[in-house]
């Protein structure tokens, strides 16, 4: 770092120049998440909004409380805790006991972010770690999927008309049952984690973020392309694999986190491909039906190495070009 240009501010990623910039970026992310929340509310009812509200309030509270206890500057104005709250809520089943969701918020905000010094200093995405810890720690409630009458007939039939808990398309696929049509998968009239169901709504949000230059398309495109190609190679339906589970939510909103993904475009492409490969490996072979969050966490951990390799080739160029 000794050869850094003097006119560049040396700081931890994401090289935010002023809090206002972070806030405007984060606001855009929240706007981009609204279509998905709308579809979720249609599919799951108002429970979706309630869960999102609980997570947002909990995250903002923990952010405020942690900074207060540590006697540090209040950072809830940068909207990052709100984004974490919404994304974490999107990763949970809609009927999860709310205190468990709050535990997840605590892990995301306090353990993953503030213990490491706050936004920009965490090495793993807070919402991802929150989701994984809940998923492993509270295995049963985290895989308790409700069925509503707005959902695809295939989902309702699979579990029987009177069932309160159903199976996600990925689980039905693993069991060899009748799957929802690809159109239903794309629109999102299926069950699963609250915010991950609607591919079309998440795509709209992603396109908005790309147009607003909030995210670079490198990670989502390479992530999704890898999933599609591997599906073809392994003999699965690529459309189904792309629409099912958390791939869209992960690729657009979680893998693109500035702090925990590589700085250069080649690095981002490696990151995206890695996410896709590990997602498909876990989906196809591991005990868990879904591998998106594990894949992204693993790539988060590999990010310093990816940066080390890709940055040496593009020394100086990438550093200043990082998102501000």
């Amino acid at each position: 770092m000794a050869d850094m240009h003097k006119d560049l501010i040396v700081s931890a990623a994401p090289h935010v120049v002023s809090p206002a910039d972070t806030a405007s970026i984060m606001r855009d992310v929240v706007i981009a998440l609204i279509p998905a929340l709308a579809v979720s509310t249609y599919v799951f009812g108002f429970g979706a909004i309630f869960l999102t509200a609980v997570c947002v309030i909990a995250c903002v509270f923990f952010e405020w409380a942690a900074r207060k206890i540590l006697k540090r500057e209040n950072t809830i104005g940068d909207w990052s805790a709100i984004v974490t709250g919404v994304i974490l809520a999107f990763n949970l089943p809609v009927n999860i006991p709310k205190w468990m969701a709050v535990v997840g918020c605590f892990i995301a905000i306090v353990v993953v972010k503030q213990l490491f010094g706050g936004l920009g200093q965490n090495f793993a995405n807070p919402a991802i770690v929150g989701r994984i810890t809940l998923f492993i720690g509270f295995a049963t409630p985290m895989t308790n999927w409700v069925i509503t009458d707005r959902m695809s007939q295939a989902i309702i039939n699979y579990s029987g008309p009177d069932a309160v808990a159903g199976a996600t398309p990925l689980a039905i696929n693993a069991a060899g049952g009748q799957l929802p049509s690809n159109l239903e998968m794309f629109l999102g009239t299926i069950n699963g984690s609250m915010g991950e169901v609607s591919t079309v709504a998440l795509l709209i949000g992603g396109i908005y973020l790309v147009i607003r230059k909030v995210i670079s398309p490198a990670i989502p495109v390479s992530f999704l392309a890898t999933v599609a190609v591997l599906s073809l190679v392994m003999g699965f339906d690529p459309i189904f694999q792309l629409c099912a589970g958390g791939v869209m939510l992960g690729a657009i909103f979680m893998a693109t986190d500035y702090v925990t993904s590589p700085i250069t475009t080649p690095g981002r492409i490696i990151f995206g491909i890695g996410c896709g490969v590990f997602t498909m490996l876990i989906r196809s072979y591991a005990s868990y039906p879904e591998g998106v969050s594990f894949a992204i966490l693993l790539m988060n951990i590999l990010t310093p190495h990816i940066d080390r390799i890709t940055r040496s080739k593009l020394n100086g160029v990438a550093k200043g070009g990082a998102k501000a």
């Binding site: 006991p97 492993i136 509270f138 295995a139």
Partner: peptide
């Protein structure tokens, strides 16, 4: 209260 099983697994130990 539902136990938070991750605490008896490796990550819980480190934490």
């Amino acid at each position: 209260i539902t136990p938070f099983t991750i605490m008896v697994m490796a990550p819980g130990g480190f934490f």
